[in-house]
Design a protein around this nucleic acid. Sequence first.
DNA 1: CGAACCATGATTGTATACAACGATTGAAGA
DNA 2: TCTTCAATCGTTGTATACAATCATGGTTCG
Lengths: 220, 220
Amino acid sequence: MAKASEKAYELVRRRIIDGTYPPASRLTEKEIADSSGVSRTPVREALQQLQSEGFVQVTANQGAVVVDWTASDAVEVYEIRGLLEPYAAARAAERATIADIEELQALAEAQKNETESREPGHMERIGALNSQFHRKLLDCARSTRLSIVMPMLIEAPLIMRMFTRYSDRQLVRSAEHHIEIVAALRARDPEWAAAIMRTHIYAARTRALPDQSREEHLQD
Amino acid sequence: MAKASEKAYELVRRRIIDGTYPPASRLTEKEIADSSGVSRTPVREALQQLQSEGFVQVTANQGAVVVDWTASDAVEVYEIRGLLEPYAAARAAERATIADIEELQALAEAQKNETESREPGHMERIGALNSQFHRKLLDCARSTRLSIVMPMLIEAPLIMRMFTRYSDRQLVRSAEHHIEIVAALRARDPEWAAAIMRTHIYAARTRALPDQSREEHLQD
DNA sequence: CGAACCATGATTGTATACAACGATTGAAGA
DNA sequence: TCTTCAATCGTTGTATACAATCATGGTTCG
């Protein structure tokens, strides 16, 4: 059996992402402990972990609340990703092994296929593949600090739901970006990798902006 | 009395920074609990907190070890700061209140004075003032994400000791940078703020590079 | 009627006991 | 001599009991 603290962590994280625990709702340790079948001690650890990842906010003696995301929060996340992920991509271009690159390619192609097939549940699978791709690329950057910092930006609940705002056209483009990133890594070209990654993030950022009609309203 | 978990946190953090717990040394919960006079439960919370800030690395069933910093780690920190802090400075230029700016100015001037007076213990005070300045500026950026991420980069133990590598000339310059940053905020000029901050970080990064003889060896 | 104030209940914070796990050491066998 | 295995011990992981704290609602006094 997995460790108790992980069990609680997974449960809460899943429920935050799927909306069972809506934004601004209060989480009591006892309720989580009962739901996950562990004691309060590992629950507290899980909540602290979730806090360091930006999922919840715990206040002294008042417990944890699910953080509420505003549009400006989302934009802020993309701005910071726009600074850090190109750097991560450049590092990855210099450090990824062949095996790493193959794995990234597999992820990118799987995502591309999902965007084309559009079978039931493809949105969830695309979201998962997208997260995996960015996480794997982060791994290839071989940077302790980035590995601590970026998961919070990649796996934020709002960010993971952002795909629902994409048109089919935009989903395809996003997958193509991933494929081009892999190409840049294969070419061992840090600048190319950084440039296409920057493009990728900026394109995503637009989806987070309040008014989404500014781009591509003619095509979609 | 402060909360038990904070007590343990402060103790361990201080001991890591002052070298009582050297890099790569193992920290047992019991030893910390005895030293700080609290039980193991809050100690565990403190260690987890310290992990999320990059001070220690805890491994399952094997406890925590103080992270060991290499030269490349230091460079990595400055590279990331070189990306994030100019952005933070730009945001601060748009968001800082007059009171914020006055406080920053006071910190910058105090640091300048310390570099000129050179009274006993000035190095420690400069280090503290420097941390305060960057933390306050971060505060003015009004970014939840940056506030979570950056303390780890600003308060890393190695970074705080880096001042010992500065020549007098470089200490003065560093203080001057801070003063100019305040001027940029006062002018509400995000680009200026970002530019001088970038300069400030890059100048610091050079100190972290293995071979420090490349700059200013004639003057110093 | 309103505001300040205590009593109460619920929830978080801490301590301690116990369980589970891993490293280490020593002996037995090849 | 080297390897393997098992027992032991120290350490971490978890559960539970208790203490401290906060939100609440009702009560009293102005």
